[in-house]
Write a protein that binds this DNA or RNA. Structure first.
Lengths: 233, 233
DNA sequence: ACCTGAACACCGTTCAAGT
DNA sequence: ACCTGAACACCGTTCAAGT
């Protein structure tokens, strides 16, 4: 895990503090445990009470390190942003943006509960700001104008976020449970939705299919379009 | 409002029922009121108790028309899908898909609370299925192969959903509150984030700027790429 | 300083009763 | 059949107290 050490508002002590049982509570430990609960049991299972119990502490103790539940949600979204690889401004812009997009996708797939939170959190955290600053710097250093950078930034992010939404909604994870596939097939066999049936039977349910390939296609389309708009081609 | 009359599982009575005060409860009335509460006060304000009160009824009465809170969330997401214009298969595919994408964007902007729900709802409703069937049919009738239709479908939807996520997270709605803009400017004036500052000052905060233009740019890029991949160009 | 017990105003939902 | 009162097992959070 890579969630930006010494990045946010200073919590004071720089001592590593042994990670044994009943280590002293810190903002970092609270957020890390919150992420773990959301990963393992879903966002609905993350309550002040369940979080406190997982930390072997009473609910009220949490309030000495975070302002409340909303601050925890803001915090874990920023932890997720901190796990994404940043593009290197000044390098091969296309390779850097592709690496960043693939990293963001895999991080959001690891933390699908974060996708709906990307929207609802009004105040962007420091890792979020650093992330987007790096994307903008990469685009500007590549020679894109300010208006074109705005276009590229919006399109790239819409694609990455939107793909994450789709993946989080995927009914089966790469052909795992056959009974789920059967239930879906049964819904299609009614005869309505012939095109969805066609797509599912002839393509998506075929052995070699991987939804991740759609990500590479879309990313290629976008980067090609951006490359074509660069003046010094 | 256009949320697919006579579409879902039959609720029986086809009589219009006068919309006067204390009309009999139906699944449609429950869902319509739920959408109105989410629109006006946000998703958090939608509780079984607040919904019952808005319908001039006790909370327990709702359970005779919907299975529970989750069923209401599934239901209102499908109401939102039902408000989106469908593309007409067999027509000008590019114009039809553009019209559908713009309609989906404006519907999701009208109901920003629906964006995070698009993911978390596992079971797609009838309006959702009809919507995606129409998109697939439009692509197939335009001459796209099945694998290419899968690419196009994933890319278009990722863009529409992702753009909705971005718009729902926009801090100010088209230059409304100047004090919000100042607070953001203050955060940038620290000197970190020079590229975000540049983009904000030189572009986004300029008089003529409209974030909606980014939608048209991205949509154009995607539709151009799809058109270029059609065999019978 | 950090932690906590008890309490408050909420949730969604079940159950048994009303008409 | 449709509606409801009372109750249950939860929430997030405040307040006053402990050490």
């Amino acid at each position: 895990m890579v969630h930006g050490t010494s990045a946010g508002a200073g919590t004071g002590g720089a001592t590593p503090a042994p990670a044994g049982p009943r280590a002293p509570l810190t903002r970092e430990r609270v957020l890390a445990r919150a992420v773990a609960i959301a990963d393992e049991q879903g966002l609905a299972a993350l309550t002040m009470r369940s979080l406190a119990q997982a930390l072997d502490v009473k609910p009220m103790s949490l309030y000495h390190h975070v302002a409340g539940k909303d601050a925890i949600l803001d915090g874990i979204v920023d932890v997720v942003f901190g796990e994404m690889e940043l593009p290197e401004p000044g390098g091969d812009w296309r390779a850097e943006l592709a690496r960043r997009a693939r990293s963001a996708r895999s991080v959001l797939r690891r933390h699908p509960w974060a996708v709906p939170l990307l929207e609802s959190r009004a105040v962007p955290g420091p890792a979020n700001l650093r992330h987007h600053e790096a994307v903008l710097a990469t685009l500007r250093d590549a020679g894109f104008s300010v208006p074109m950078t705005a276009h590229a930034y919006a399109l790239l992010d819409a694609f990455v976020y939107g793909f994450a939404v789709q993946e989080a909604a995927l009914p089966f994870d790469a052909g795992s449970a056959p009974q789920v596939a059967e239930a879906i097939a049964a819904q299609f066999s009614s005869g309505d939705f012939p095109r969805m049936t066609e797509l599912a039977v002839e393509h998506v349910m075929q052995p070699g299919y991987d939804f991740g390939d759609e990500f590479e296609y879309g990313l290629g389309v976008i980067l090609d379009a951006l490359a074509a708009s660069l003046p010094g081609d």
